[in-house]
């Protein structure tokens, strides 16, 4: 079956997912509806992770789905859905800026082709990565490198992220005085005796 089209099984899978990736990436910047654009971005991440799986980088692939598809894009969608973006003012002056944009795009493509051309990144420059045996664990390989050779950069990156989280909260958090808010800890601590009084009384005569 594979011989008919001159491609091996992994190649077919690669072309399917890479064309999905390119098409969905194009759709992200062309569709008008921001929610649809975000959903196409999800599809792009998903296709990229499938391509990483082909590289036997299962940890990175699954983490891409877990972190970007499962968490980041959910929050992104959350925000985009609540915004009522009016696209008309955003598209004003499209034709006016088109020549400038095109010129910049052509320059960028030219520069990239200089660096990323076949003389530097051609197929013959790099041998195909050797296939690993069945007991190879990408997770274990990444873990052992991350916690030996790169342990300080890794820890520093973690601390920087923590600082960023705290800074973001500290900058945006403002305590408004005089508002009435519920205090869940008090509500949780309430016992039945505080709220309910059981009264024993005789039945009244009719």
């Amino acid at each position: 079956m594979y011989e008919l089209i001159g491609l091996s099984g992994p190649q077919i899978v690669f072309y399917i997912f890479s064309s999905m990736l390119v098409i969905s990436a194009l759709m992200v910047i062309t569709v008008r509806n921001p929610v649809r654009a975000a959903l196409f971005l999800v599809l792009a991440f998903f296709s990229a992770s499938a391509i990483w799986l082909l590289l036997e980088a299962e940890f990175l692939a699954i983490t891409l789905v877990l972190v970007y598809v499962g968490a980041v894009m959910v929050l992104f969608l959350f925000v985009v859905m609540m915004l009522d973006i009016n696209m008309v003012p955003l598209q004003e002056g499209f034709t006016r800026y088109l020549p400038l944009g095109l010129a910049i795009a052509v320059i960028i493509v030219f520069e990239l082709s200089l660096v990323l051309g076949p003389e530097n990144f051609g197929l013959e420059k790099f041998a195909a990565p050797a296939a690993h045996t069945a007991d190879y664990s990408n997770t274990k390989a990444i873990g052992s490198i991350l916690y030996t050779d790169y342990v300080y950069p890794f820890e520093v990156a973690a601390v920087i992220l923590l600082v960023a989280i705290i800074a973001a909260i500290a900058l945006t958090f403002r305590r408004r005085v005089g508002t009435k808010t519920q205090k869940p800890e008090e509500q949780v601590a309430v016992r039945r005796e505080d709220r309910v009084r059981l009264v024993k009384m005789k039945a009244e005569k009719r």
Binding site: T63, V65, L66, V69, G70, T139
Partner: peptide, 8 residues
């Protein structure tokens, strides 16, 4: 990476 797969 079965556990990660399930989470993802």
């Amino acid at each position: 990476a079965g556990l990660l797969y399930v989470l993802a």
